[in-house]
Write a protein that binds this DNA or RNA. Structure first.
Lengths: 251, 251
DNA sequence: TTGTCTTAGAGGTCTGACCTTTTGGAGGAC
DNA sequence: GTCCTCCAAAAGGTCAGACCTCTAAGACAA
């Protein structure tokens, strides 16, 4: 029972200054001592207290800011300084966008993930959707119906429709993930859409798809809403050109 | 048709140096000029080229590093420098962990999101799981069966089991999200588990749950695997103490 | 062959100065 | 008294430069 195990030498991870600052801030948050809206000490003061340079503090703040955990504001007065915040979507979107562009997440996986998340949201939306949420969906649909709407505006409205459903589903995390994935696809989708030949007919089909989903939700028919959502997502992915990958062709 | 719209004065967003650096790097990635494994210029050189200070470059690198997009290595030689990388999980985990701690994502939403993602993975794993993936699951189960296993080790093995299923599902994005959510729950779960009274009986039930899920997967019975996974996740969430929220009680 | 020294290149850190934005108060003009 | 202008303070934003530390790789000695 004594020396049955060979010693495993794990590489020591040297912790850098800004990482210790992140950990220190994280610790306060985990302990509940920092809540949304609370201010952090001024950079200079925090640096002095943690015994690191201001640059180290700033690097940490930058990272947490990019995660939507902090928010910095210049100037003087009660609005100035760095505060705990709650904006997960932006950071989530950038993270996913870049990993999609790097093909760390293959497009087929992204499509399947959308199906899983959005089926669930659509189904829940059919029973949950508030009046406000339904109005949001109709507004997005109306923007897609606008005459002479540009392909970009059309797509942004399309995105808004899907996000509205996700939010109507009532799950903040699922909604954020859905919004982030959609946001990550914004540029590749726009590229693909610009290259489409028969845009008018495609746009019409998308409008019909959305209308069908909305009808199912308003009728309280969750299973149908889920099924239509899946069909819509898969068909759209298929119809858009292969360059959908987002990365320009290598060599 | 002329002045139907009131002018909306959007606040101009002053773009900060590090944000422009991020955009510049992002642009190269989006254009496909930077792929996983490629090196960035040395910080000093990049700063000179982009006409910003080295601090600005470093802040940008920190952000992208925290997203798992870049990786920095000290020293000399071909391994030293900053490289494009592909490690989305760590950054995703930290982001979710903090937003969960700040209660931006309520625990019920996190549980439901897990159900949605892991049901899908379990179902696919039943048809897809490779021999290696199944071995991974069995290994995690074995670690949970070890005599005298600590509650922490037990939970890490539990997590590994769920992640193994997610990976067996064959969707990299879903697997990453699952791993990140599980990782975000690691500390709150451990806190909850430490407070459990009848640990042995709970541990036994968890072992049985896992065994049942594994059996269903190995039998190729996707629907059962999905159902058992959902029941397992929901029951576990219910059984763990309410302090599960992760944040210590206010006031 | 093995160990030690040296050097160069890269990231890591710190210091201190200065810039810019924003608030709010002090003080004058009316 | 009211309004305007000006100024100081506070905070983040930026920069330049020096120095530290780590690592690879070559030179050289044992």
């Amino acid at each position: 029972m004594s020396s049955n195990q060979t010693p495993d030498w794990q590489p020591l991870k040297r912790s850098r200054a800004h990482e210790m600052v992140i950990d220190a801030i994280e610790e306060q948050i985990m302990a509940g001592l920092l809540r949304v809206g609370d201010p952090l000490p001024p950079e200079r003061e925090l640096a002095a207290r943690l015994q690191v340079s201001r640059a180290g503090v700033r690097e940490a703040v930058r990272v947490l800011e990019s995660d939507g955990i902090l928010r910095s504001q210049r100037g003087a007065g009660p609005e100035a300084g760095t505060f705990v915040s709650a904006l997960p979507r932006q950071g989530l979107t950038r993270l996913l966008r870049l990993h999609v562009a790097l093909a760390n997440f293959p497009m087929t996986d992204v499509v399947d993930a959308r199906v899983v998340l959005e089926r669930s949201s659509a189904e829940r939306a059919a029973s949950n959707a508030s009046t406000a949420a339904r109005a949001e969906m109709r507004a997005a649909l109306a923007r897609m119906d606008a005459p002479e709407v540009s392909r970009e505006a059309f797509n942004d409205a399309d995105t808004d429709f899907h996000i509205a459903i996700a939010e109507a589903g009532g799950n903040e995390l699922v909604a954020s993930l859905t919004a982030a994935i959609r946001g990550a696809l914004r540029i590749p989708i726009q590229q693909a859409v610009r290259a489409v030949e028969h845009w008018d007919s495609l746009a019409d089909r998308l409008r019909q798809d959305h209308r069908g989903i909305l009808d199912a939700i308003e009728a309280g028919d969750g299973p149908t809403a889920a099924r239509l959502t899946e069909e819509h997502i898969r068909r759209s992915a298929t119809d858009l050109p292969a360059g959908f990958g987002g990365v320009t062709e290598p060599t």
